[in-house]
Amino acid sequence: MAVYEHGYKPYTGSLTPEWSRFLILPRHAFRDVFRSKFFIAFFALCFLYPLVAAILIYLHHNVNAIALMKLDLRELVPINASFFHAFVTSQCSLGFFLTVLIGPPLISRDLANNALPLYLSRPFTRKEYVVGKMSVILILVSLITWIPGLLLFLLQAYLEGAGWLGQNLRLAGAIFLASLVWIVVLAVMSLAVSAWLKWRVVASGALLAIFFIPSAFGEIVNALFRTRLGHLISLGAIMNSLWRGLFGLFQRQTGQIEGMRNGRIIEITMLEPPLWASWLALALICGLCVLLLMRKVRAYEVVK
């Protein structure tokens, strides 16, 4: 079918491996995503914290710099689990806003333009389509979360010298796993929202609402019933517990308050929900999102 021949001819060349075809979607999506100057500016901003953290780690091991600043940086900002936990928390929060920017149009645009039959009439399955769309978020948010996190970890291990890497290997796992869990949750949630809401602004608003409204509701439950179980409906609180758990910083007891029982003032211990409950809540949220997603991602919807 050459331009000059004007005749129909079949394709006889080589084909790409089937397993790699889902990566076609992020490759084409990035073109669109990086067309926005606002997005590029925000994406660049996301690397500010890793840069500052890298400088801190460097200064930590530079005796001359510490002497020059006349500060005991080692005590002020210790490079430990809390340091990396703070890094992951901050970057994952930025990852959420990044997802709010890029997630909503990923599927809604295809649904609005009836593009799914075109994708699914090719040797390309629904699962590959969803994984391909998820990869857009997975790749971009990975670039600002666990990838710089692990680079910082390696920088610290290099500068600290022998022994530190072996003793703190758990931190590397925690950085990777904590980020990955959050990225998967974000990806699944934003795609589910994108599949059900066609308008970008509404979908972005819905993503923010899903994050903040249950959190506020959970706090009301906590305040009314003097409990911490309200955290189970707050995505932010669930993730915070899981991150703390992964970094070995989780504590169930988060305070004591005074309460009345039988006319007497007593101390009530506030206990966070156990970690297994947080994992379960997260799994339920993800399961629901996947269900919603697979219900909508079809070549044609059969109207009953």
């Binding site: 060349g13 080589s14 076609i24 075109l118 040797p123």
Partner: peptide, 13 residues
């Protein structure tokens, strides 16, 4: 081009 790639063709082809 996107549709061709989804059918298994390499990007250049």
């Amino acid at each position: 081009r996107l549709m061709a790639e989804l059918s298994g063709m390499p990007p250049d082809a």
